[in-house]
Design a protein around this nucleic acid. Sequence first.
DNA 1: CAGTATTTGTTCGTATGTATA
DNA 2: ATATACATACGAACAAATACT
Lengths: 358, 358
Amino acid sequence: MAKYQKIIDWLNKNIDEGRLRPGEKIPSENELCEMFGLSRQTVRHAIAKLSEEGLLESVRGSGTYVSDQHAEEGKKSVVAVVTTYVDDYIFPSTISGIESTLSSKGYSMQLSFTNNTTGKEKQILEDLLERNDVAGVIMEPVKSALPNPNIALYHKLMERGMKILFLNSYYPELDLPHVSINDEECAYRAVKALAEAGHKSIGCVLKLDDGQGRERYRGYLRAMTECKLSFTYDHVNWIDTIDIKDGKKALGRVKERLNGCTAVFCYNDLVAGMLMQMLQEEGLKVPGDMSVIGMDDSDMAKVGVGGVAISSIPHPKARLGEKAAQNIIRMIHSSGQFGNATFEFAEDVIMRDSVRQI
Amino acid sequence: MAKYQKIIDWLNKNIDEGRLRPGEKIPSENELCEMFGLSRQTVRHAIAKLSEEGLLESVRGSGTYVSDQHAEEGKKSVVAVVTTYVDDYIFPSTISGIESTLSSKGYSMQLSFTNNTTGKEKQILEDLLERNDVAGVIMEPVKSALPNPNIALYHKLMERGMKILFLNSYYPELDLPHVSINDEECAYRAVKALAEAGHKSIGCVLKLDDGQGRERYRGYLRAMTECKLSFTYDHVNWIDTIDIKDGKKALGRVKERLNGCTAVFCYNDLVAGMLMQMLQEEGLKVPGDMSVIGMDDSDMAKVGVGGVAISSIPHPKARLGEKAAQNIIRMIHSSGQFGNATFEFAEDVIMRDSVRQI
DNA sequence: CAGTATTTGTTCGTATGTATA
DNA sequence: ATATACATACGAACAAATACT
């Protein structure tokens, strides 16, 4: 190893461990020469290297000082925001909430999409590893219910001190904070609302490839158990993202599996709407024959399908984004340790036409 | 001036002026020593400085080479995208189109919002001036119909070689390319469609504070002239962004000014929808008493107001974003000169319930 | 305030090691 | 194998800015 590298290591170590604090003067070149038994040229080479990195700043006639943290933070004013894809009704508000909060605190936002594929996620994470101007990441997990092949990359980012906050869901393998809705609690409230309306046999249609589906399933189960309703796995329907795009095809099976149910809890309003449309086309009435409840309180829920407005649980949208941005900024400012930045929203059901009181 | 600075200047000049091309070997350290009559340390110091900047790369045992352009571009792989605000129906698709195209070419997207205020625009432009990792900007103008106080900042950016492409509209003061819909042509087609349906007295409701309103007004005028319809300025209604948020209040005046019209061309579907709602509430029938045509082909147009689907001109949304991203990349790659990167989309009217055939 | 010591900035010279052509 | 060219390292000197007495 080169001799100057030893000086670099020594300085790095002392700065890291707090023996040399920001603004403090490091030993003079001649002192370092004696300490290491090296020539001044070599010492100067080491100092030059660290100065290039911005860790040290020399003042002629005075000395060499450890850079202010502040000066370093000024350069790292970008927060990367990575989401899966763009939907029309939640994404715009959330992203707007994130951006307005970030920009009011002097940060700019870099936005990427994973298209919900781990390949693209990998590419984005590798890019983040190479960049040194990104202070933090707000990340929406990719297929968070399935084992993720990019966990090692997250660990690398964490080792480099990158602040990471998950949005909407989280990877159980990583001990990192998240900001999301409390999917379990929301699902619980939705199903409980159906039970309180007098329904005994309640099915569900959930998404299987993200953690939100998993959590909502847990909430469904808790409500069913607590309300002492009989639970049959026959009434549990799992669909995935592709099914949602295909639409009716995938929902054909669903109708059969809801046989005997008087109510169904749907993953979101989009699924609820598609289901209602299918039921109506087959001559069944909502809520007469089947009560339906969704999530997100989208425009579709308000307008309704076939004139039947959909009961739903509101999504905090803009507030979710603001909270996520606030928390990533807190994490960035607090060096090393920070309080728990996890936050979960839970809203109450908005009852509309699609649920029948028995 | 330090002697090593002379070497740096000489090298910079030769690289700038193309005498030393990317990939080429610069004179060896010893050659430079002789050329400048300086010691090898001094020459090495100069080379080290430039290597830190990424302009030179030394290979032990071989020589020092001018960095590939490619290696330099690798660092400037951020495209800033600045839009006014987030709406629910055009923005998501457009931004998604931009991001997917940028990311497929190895660029990442930094997104900011001006909230349609010149103050925020100024702040963003100043930030861009300080940053040196941004290769290009896709910019949606702020209130593009009014004189812009930030033109000087745009000139500064241009002087620094920043590639700038405008989206949706443009500043007439600046000779810069834009990607947008052809507002003039689209408005022309919409109004012509009304004329071809037999309408003689056609009004309009347009937005006054952006260039799109101005262009659509020109299209309205051209259609009226070409179809030899009588034009009265009484039938021209100007509203601004705040009116749209206020909703009905501002449209009260509009109804009076449309007196005598049998059809009206609206700035977009949102305005068309609000107008239709107001007319319906006052007992007037669409299209019986008044035919309405909008723009953007939003969900609202498809679903309709009071069961009346709105005729509209489609917005290319995702394609607009893709085109903008493609063109900014073209501009970035072509050093200095580039072909005209301006592109305008023009779509055909989609006729629905809201226009009556006379 | 002046003078001196300290500290970094610049430049010269020299030497050895190591990768490449 | 040799010459070339970069990488690392040491020694020395003076200049310029700062700090201290």
